[in-house]
């Protein structure tokens, strides 16, 4: 039983990482109605920027917020420069451009900062919470930050006019234009926000997985899985999805005999596909009601 509890807590801790990433994914899905395959790389690059700031002597929190600002601007810039000219291209072409961005960002990061592993500081400390040995201060901090982000996003989308305009843009761009919303800028804003949230995710994840250009590969995959399981139009679902993926992955790795460790990822993914087959819009996704 103790082992079980321990594994659940450890799962929640890694789940915090996935939840954070999933939140960023859902964010951009709201803005552009598509998954951004380069999102993990964007987060990785942001984390390197934070690392560089700290190398130059900035205190942690200054670097933290400066990175968020830079990432936001970079997100907006990517949309304006790369995607605006492709507004009328097909979804498949967009996915190819995401892949291209992935390759570019990964390669440039490796070129500037090389591929050696770097350690990244945690603002919360790495000692165990209350000396229990079950979950670390950093894990706890990460979960708390994720939950705070969730609440902020919820309030933003629910109670602000810009949030409402962004939701309208994602749901029906044509109608959004008809009420005078500047759709192009809403999409750019969505990119900026997604990049900023991704930066937070990257900076929280880096102390756990270490900083290097490929750090986000598998995390992005789990983040997608979490977002899709939770429902792509539900930030809350994404966070719950993230925690459940973390827990499932850990429990499967420990308790399913023989194949456990080796096939941890496979089992997690199989479960996800199973969930999707039973509930195609995700556990918390809104089913769109429409009359014909």
């Amino acid at each position: 039983m103790d082992l079980f509890l321990h594994q659940v807590l450890a799962g929640l801790a890694t789940g915090g990482i996935y939840a954070c990433m999933a939140l960023a994914i859902v964010m951009i899905y709201q803005a552009i109605d598509s998954l951004n395959f380069a999102q993990g790389e964007m987060a990785m690059f942001s984390t390197f920027i934070a690392w560089q700031f700290m190398q130059w002597g900035m205190p942690y929190w200054v670097a933290f917020f400066a990175t968020i600002a830079v990432s936001f601007a970079a997100g907006v810039a990517i949309e304006r420069v790369v995607f605006k000219p492709l507004r009328h291209a097909s979804l498949l072409s967009h996915i190819v451009v995401f892949i291209a961005l992935f390759a570019i960002i990964n390669s440039v990061a490796g070129f500037i900062w090389d591929f050696t592993i770097k350690s990244f500081p945690s603002p919360f400390g790495t000692q165990s919470l209350f000396g229990s040995g079950l979950i670390s201060m950093h894990d706890t901090g990460m979960i708390v930050v994720t939950l705070i982000l969730l609440v902020l996003l919820f309030a933003f989308f629910r109670y602000t006019r810009i949030g409402l305009a962004m939701r309208a843009t994602a749901e029906n761009p044509e109608s959004a234009r008809l009420v005078g919303i500047r759709v192009g800028w809403m999409v750019a804003l969505g990119w900026g926000m997604a990049a900023a949230i991704g930066a937070v995710a990257g900076m929280l994840i880096a102390p756990v997985v270490f900083l290097e250009p490929n750090m986000m590969l598998s995390i992005l995959l789990y983040g997608f899985a979490a977002a899709v399981v939770g429902g792509l139009n539900s930030p809350l679902g994404a966070v719950i999805g993230g925690f459940s993926v973390g827990v499932i992955e850990n429990l499967a790795g420990t308790f399913i005999p023989y194949v456990g460790r080796e096939l941890k990822l496979t089992i997690a993914l199989t479960l996800i596909v199973a969930v999707l087959t039973l509930k195609p819009s995700g556990l918390f996704g809104k089913v769109v009601v429409s009359r014909v």
Partner: peptide, 17 residues
């Protein structure tokens, strides 16, 4: 062209954007 996933209130709010 109503925003079908949003409430009636929100639709009107959007009209005044």
């Amino acid at each position: 062209g109503t925003f079908s996933r949003m409430t009636v209130d929100e639709n009107l709010q959007l009209g005044a954007m």
